[in-house]
């Protein structure tokens, strides 16, 4: 049923997806979550990981998902220097493709690298994070978790707080949330809010307490600790003072659930009490990540069978 509405070789980002394509993935993930057993959707195929940035959570999650679908998994940590040139990365891809790799799960520190590669390979590319551009499966699992908890995303008020400027999670979430009818506020110091963000149809705030009023969910972004060396934040404790999520701040928004893409800097962007509190969905997100990634891989797998 869902296969009909998915017609893409790759998953590059949520910006290019329609609401119904996103819902197709989320609906498929519901089924994978309820019967998280072995499937043979990808048996006989091979998925390779090319990561130029460290990752434990996203990579393991993808790996579990690919194995549960019966795929062979090939892991690479590619030194970022050898991935610098778009052309040499394309060479790497084509070589692996010649060995029979069907799926590439890619993470790259530079925005847009997958977009340049995708038209030049018959293999399917799945974006596991490119620069500050997109991290679609993280946003999909955030959407899935919110939809499961709140039944629908339509009309929800979602606050994304933190380093919006450098965050691919924020960008993918903004695209996905807007398409599914949520209202989005991004919140953080001016130095970490990118220019013209309001033109994406979101509100921008520099006051977390005000932003949280009436919020149904808050997605807390990880703060890279080196931002203080760039004068983008004044100090970690000063940042926590203004933008750290605490139970006291959350008290102003009854029923507001807490998301975080991980890994958490406790005491920097979120207090331990808030991270581990009754409204936290952080571990639920991790669990849902596998189902969402299985959904993505199997939909693309069905596309590949139809277009073989």
């Amino acid at each position: 049923m869902t296969a009909k509405t998915w017609d893409r070789k790759d998953l590059l980002g949520l910006q290019e997806l329609s609401a119904s394509e996103i819902e197709t993935i989320l609906d498929a993930a519901v089924i994978f979550k309820s019967s998280s057993k072995i499937s043979s959707a990808l048996s006989g195929s091979t998925a390779a990981f090319l990561f130029s940035e460290p990752s434990t959570r996203t990579r393991s999650s993808f790996e579990v998902a690919a194995r549960r679908l019966g795929a062979e998994v090939l892991g690479f940590s590619v030194a970022s220097s050898s991935l610098l040139k778009g052309e040499s990365l394309l060479d790497t891809l084509r070589n692996l493709e010649a060995m029979g790799v069907d799926y590439f799960i890619l993470r790259h520190e530079h925005s847009g690298v997958l977009e340049s590669l995708a038209p030049n390979t018959r293999a399917s590319l799945i974006n596991a994070g490119d620069g500050a551009h997109e991290h679609p499966t993280q946003a999909l699992l955030d959407l899935f978790t919110l939809r499961e908890k709140k039944k629908t995303l339509k009309g929800l008020k979602v606050v994304i707080v933190g380093d919006i400027l450098h965050s691919r999670v924020a960008r993918s979430n903004i695209h996905g949330l807007k398409k599914l009818g949520a209202r989005v506020t991004v919140c953080g110091p001016s130095a970490l809010i990118p220019g013209d963000i309001e033109k994406l149809g979101v509100a921008a705030s520099h006051d977390l307490d005000a932003a949280l009023k009436g919020a149904d969910a808050v997605n807390v972004l990880r703060l890279q600790l080196e931002r203080q060396n760039q004068n983008l934040i004044t100090s970690l404790s000063d940042y926590f003072e203004s933008y750290g999520l605490t139970p006291a701040r959350l008290a102003a928004a009854p029923g507001c659930v807490v998301l975080h893409p991980g890994p958490i800097n406790r005491g920097v962007e979120i207090s331990s009490q808030a991270a581990d509190g009754p409204n936290s969905l952080i571990l639920e997100q991790v669990k849902n990540g596998v189902a969402v990634r299985m959904a993505v891989l199997s939909l693309i797998g069905q596309w590949r069978k139809r277009n073989a």
């Binding site: 925005s111 990118p194 013209d196 994406l200």
Partner: peptide, 15 residues
């Protein structure tokens, strides 16, 4: 350039 295009593409902007 700093602005919507840079923001959407996830690229740093020149003001």
């Amino acid at each position: 350039n700093e602005g919507l295009a840079a923001t959407v593409k996830g690229l740093r902007g020149i003001p």
